[in-house]
C-alpha cells in the first residue's frame, strides 16, 4: 500500500504566507529556557537533501529553518508552549513544498516541563524539483536518547524524557529512571 501518495508537491506561489515564527535549535546544554507552561520538543529530521523550512502548526506556529535542516540527520531541541502540534508543510526551496499532512498521522504533543521526543521525520526525495518523495515519522527513541546523552546531558539529567511520537512506546520508561524528574 502506497501511503506516501497522500502527500503532494506543490508550487508555493499559490499559497498564502503564514505568520509562523522562525526557531532554531537550542545550542547550549543549559536548562534555563522553559517558561511556566512550556516543555522541550525534541524532533529529528533525516533528510536526503538540505531543506528550506518545515512549518509546524499548533499551540504556536513555528518554522524550523535551513540551519537545522541540512542533508543528513538533524536533531532539533526547542522550547514550546505545551499543547498539540502538527507537521504542516515542508518547504524544499522557495518554489516547491510538500503539503497534504492532513490526517492525524502527523500530530504530536508537547508536554509541560519535560522533553517530548516526537520522532524522526524522514524526508527522502530525489531532488528539489522532483515529484518523487517519501515522508515518514519514525520512532528512533534509542538514537534520540543517545543524542541527548552526548549533547544535552544536563537538560536530560533535569528533565523527564517522554515519548510522544507515533503510537506508544515504553523504551524511555524502561531504560531511564523518569519518576524522579519532572517540572522544575
Amino acid at each position: 500500500m502506497d501511503y506516501f501518495r497522500r502527500l503532494i508537491l506543490i508550487a508555493l506561489a499559490i499559497l498564502t504566507a503564514s505568520c509562523a515564527s522562525n526557531v532554531t535549535s537550542i545550542k547550549e546544554d543549559i536548562d534555563n529556557k522553559l517558561e511556566v507552561d512550556e516543555g522541550y520538543l525534541l524532533i529529528a529530521v533525516d533528510t536526503s537533501i538540505s531543506l528550506n523550512k518545515i512549518w509546524i502548526s499548533g499551540e504556536k506556529d513555528i518554522w524550523l529553518t535551513a540551519d537545522d535542516l541540512r542533508s543528513g540527520t538533524n536533531y532539533i531541541l526547542i522550547n514550546l508552549p505545551e499543547g498539540e502540534y502538527q507537521i504542516h508543510k515542508i518547504k524544499l526551496n522557495n518554489w516547491f513544498s510538500i503539503v497534504g499532512f492532513e490526517d492525524d498521522l502527523w500530530n504530536f504533543k508537547v508536554e509541560k516541563g519535560v522533553i517530548s521526543y516526537v520522532g524522526h521525520l524522514d524526508v527522502q526525495t530525489s531532488g528539489w524539483w522532483s515529484r518523487r518523495h517519501r515522508v515518514e515519522l519514525m520512532n528512533k527513541s534509542s538514537l534520540a536518547l543517545e543524542f541527548l546523552q552526548d549533547d544535552f546531558s544536563t537538560i536530560l539529567a533535569n528533565r523527564k524524557l517522554t515519548y510522544h511520537g507515533p503510537g506508544e512506546d515504553e523504551f524511555f520508561d524502561i531504560v531511564l529512571n523518569n519518576n524522579e524528574k519532572g517540572d522544575l
Partner: peptide, 11 residues
C-alpha cells in the same frame, strides 16, 4: 510492540 509503533504509518 515496536513493530506496531515503529512509524506513523505503522499505526
Amino acid at each position: 510492540p515496536l513493530l506496531f509503533n515503529a512509524t506513523n504509518y505503522r499505526t
